[in-house]
Amino acid sequence: MSGHEADHPMSATPIILADGVTKRFGTNQVLTRVTLPVMERDVVCIVGPSGSGKTTLLRCFALLELPSEGRILMEGTPISTAEPDRAIKTAARAVRSEIGMVFQHFNLWPHMSVLENLIEAPLRVKKMPRDQAIAMAEKLLAKVDLADKRDAYPARLSGGQQQRVAIARALAMSPKVLLFDEATSALDPELRREVLIVMRQLALEGMTMLVVTHEMGFARHVGTRTVFMDRGEIVEEAPGAAFFDAPKTERAKRFLQQFEEE
């Protein structure tokens, strides 16, 4: 816990912060008092065995799950608690689209073309003029190297292409932080690379990112901070590569061993 306070001066406010978040589904406790700040330009990678609560934590940040205890704060303002009052709900609605999310299974809307997927939220939520939204969408598609697919439907695209469209769709709302939920896990190995390249590019451009991943290479080389979770708790966190070179806990060492054997 002392790690991040040393890295960032106390005065800086995290872009998003999980503050003592506990999550239970029925009697099953998935998260136990997790506190995790994400500072501007941070690329925080959450790693850990499956069932460790990584995805649930991310979904709490994305406001898709309410914490059972604790709070989620965005730039110091509470936006989610167990029983959000009116003020918190209003605050959540105001910042909702500033927290982007990329899903494991892309979740593109199949009845809309690539372009329509990208402009839907800017048009409806930001009330952006149509020509402006289209111009921006085309720029984003060029950025993820899919300019020629603007009129294609998602079903015609490979998984890697779909995920790149999903990233562009999230970027279209100019989020302050982008959450990635195992964004490459559903892809064949040869398609993962093209998605990871886009993610690395975003990191280099200074995008604030919170990345749940099994890609240890990405966490080591692109992440600014690695968070190791196990059984609903943050067990260890360290800057970028330090976690991989010198894991402190027994659980982390055991977890990393599996990847050496591969």
Partner: peptide, 22 residues
């Protein structure tokens, strides 16, 4: 699929917009 609705929710679409459009 639930994920299509969640994608809409995360992008800031209201429940009504998400129902009507997605």
């Amino acid at each position: 699929p639930k994920g299509h609705v969640e994608a809409a929710q995360v992008l800031g679409l209201s429940p009504l917009q998400s129902f009507r459009r997605i």
